[in-house]
């Protein structure tokens, strides 16, 4: 199963996100935290973007929704249902066709009752009914509406956040670390709602650090390293290390408990001191001088990879 057989719901090409910072008084520096990122989600697909914590994955979600901070600039093209999006169009779509499911209860206003927040402070009968239906669907007691966020358990909070997403009829869910602190079984269960949603012909972009979870639920996996996606591969390719393309993906695979738990030395480069060419170069066993040039993305066996040595 590859993205090529599907109509795209979301397609991101060459997305770059730059922070403008002032350091030591008035010296302005640009910090590129995401560079030339490509990722796509087809109809019926659940695509996981996997990267280590603190690598700027959340910014990807914020860039798609157009909610980056003011000192942050995004370039690149985003298509939604084959339509190239402008910032104005994103504004119209967010919260309606493209929704975010955030990671924790902190994303709810602590001083407003849950029901009111789910309905975005609207009080029409139809919305009330929809909210009640969704609470039933997600097995939330109706009295949850009268609780404040701090009164929700972790599981309830996750389901409330889902309800906020489903109040409109979205085509794409962007789930940003939706299962923090859950062990694999519980996380898989929490993810079943996303799977169901995708199976109805919608798209889910799951942003996570948890590769084991991604392998369980996703159709395709995009591996995020130092601000870019180094490889986009069908989940089946993760059966064996030989079907994987990028040396970083292979290193990740070997680091999994079931594959020997081999740690991989070194750290991701910080956005400020990024090496020339391939960002993985300094840690890569296959490093050659060509790696310091411009690395084009290539398609190999229905997957895409950003490595000149990939086979």
């Amino acid at each position: 199963m590859t993205c090529m057989n599907h109509k795209h719901i979301l397609q991101i090409k060459n997305l770059s996100v730059t922070f403008t910072q002032y350091e030591q008084g008035l010296r302005k520096t640009d910090l590129r935290v995401i560079r030339n990122l490509n990722v796509s989600v087809g109809e019926g697909e659940l695509v996981a973007v996997v990267g280590s914590s603190g690598s700027g994955k959340s910014l990807l979600a914020h860039a798609i929704l157009g909610i980056l901070p003011q000192n942050c600039d995004a370039e690149g093209n985003i298509w939604f249902q084959e339509e190239l999006l402008s910032p104005e169009r994103i504004k119209e779509l967010r919260g309606k066709k493209i929704v975010l499911v955030p990671q924790s209860v902190n994303y709810l206003d602590p001083l407003e009752k849950v029901g009111k927040q789910v309905r975005k402070e609207q009080n029409e009968k139809s919305l009330r009914r929809k909210q009640e239906e969704l609470f039933d669907f997600y097995k939330l007691p109706q009295k949850t509406a009268d609780l404040y966020p701090f009164e929700l358990s972790g599981g309830m909070a996750r389901r409330v956040l889902l309800t906020t997403a489903m109040m409109e009829s979205p085509r794409l869910i962007i789930a940003d670390e939706p299962t923090p602190g859950l062990h694999l079984e519980a996380a898989k269960k929490a993810m079943s709602h996303f799977r169901e949603f995708a199976d109805k012909g919608n798209g889910v972009l799951l942003i996570t650090h948890d590769i084991e979870l991604a392998l369980e639920v996703a159709d395709r996996i995009a591996v995020f390293y130092a601000g870019t996606t180094v490889e986009e591969a069908p989940v089946a390719d993760f059966q064996s290390v030989d079907t994987l393309r990028h040396p970083y993906t292979k290193a990740l695979w070997r680091a999994l408990p079931q594959h020997g738990f081999h740690p991989f030395p070194g750290n991701q480069p910080y956005a400020k001191d990024m090496p020339n060419g391939c960002p993985f170069g300094p840690r890569c066993p296959q490093l050659t001088s060509e790696c310091e040039g411009n690395i084009q993305e290539q398609t190999i066996r229905f997957g895409r990879v950003r490595c000149i040595h990939a086979k």
């Binding site: 909610i67 967010r94 929704v99 975010l100 206003d109 407003e112 975005k120």
Partner: peptide
Amino acid sequence: EDYILFAKARGKSNLSIIRHH
């Protein structure tokens, strides 16, 4: 705060964000 960001992501207007949150 995260809840302001989320309110924005949900497509709420600035006015509604200020008023309600």
